[in-house]
Amino acid sequence: MTRIKLSAAILLGLVILSIVSGAWIIGSCRDLQIRSIQVEEAWLAGDVEEAYRLACRLEEDWESFRRPAAVFLRSRELLEIDRITSRVRYRTASGGELQPELAELRHMLEQLRSSVIPRPETVL
């Protein structure tokens, strides 16, 4: 009976862990997407200084998400977003093409977000 109780407890723990980690990943990705929109808005408004500041915040937010997220997500999924956030900050400062980078970043964050939501297409 101890084994059955222990198994039930472990399963319950795994379910809770998956729900909590999923909710955290979804929430964090959404926050990062909002931050990228803010960078784009500031950039389009011609406020380069504000866009740079927000891009730095975006990179910081990503860094603080990436470390614990590496426990749950494959590192190659995170590596590409890591590169894009670095490029966004660089391009905001140097005046390069920013919008395609931000669009790609949002797209990758959306992919990351939907990968943890159990839907038929993600499960199957």
């Binding site: 084994r3 059955i4 198994s7 039930a8 795994l14 590496a70 426990v71 749950f72 494959r74 590192s75």
Partner: peptide, 22 residues
């Protein structure tokens, strides 16, 4: 493959064994 987090390996192992016990 160190690209795969340990948790990703541990979760299915634990889940399968718990399913088996139940």
């Amino acid at each position: 493959d160190t690209d795969i987090p340990l948790v990703i390996g541990a979760v299915p192992i634990l889940a399968l064994v718990c399913f088996e016990v139940l």
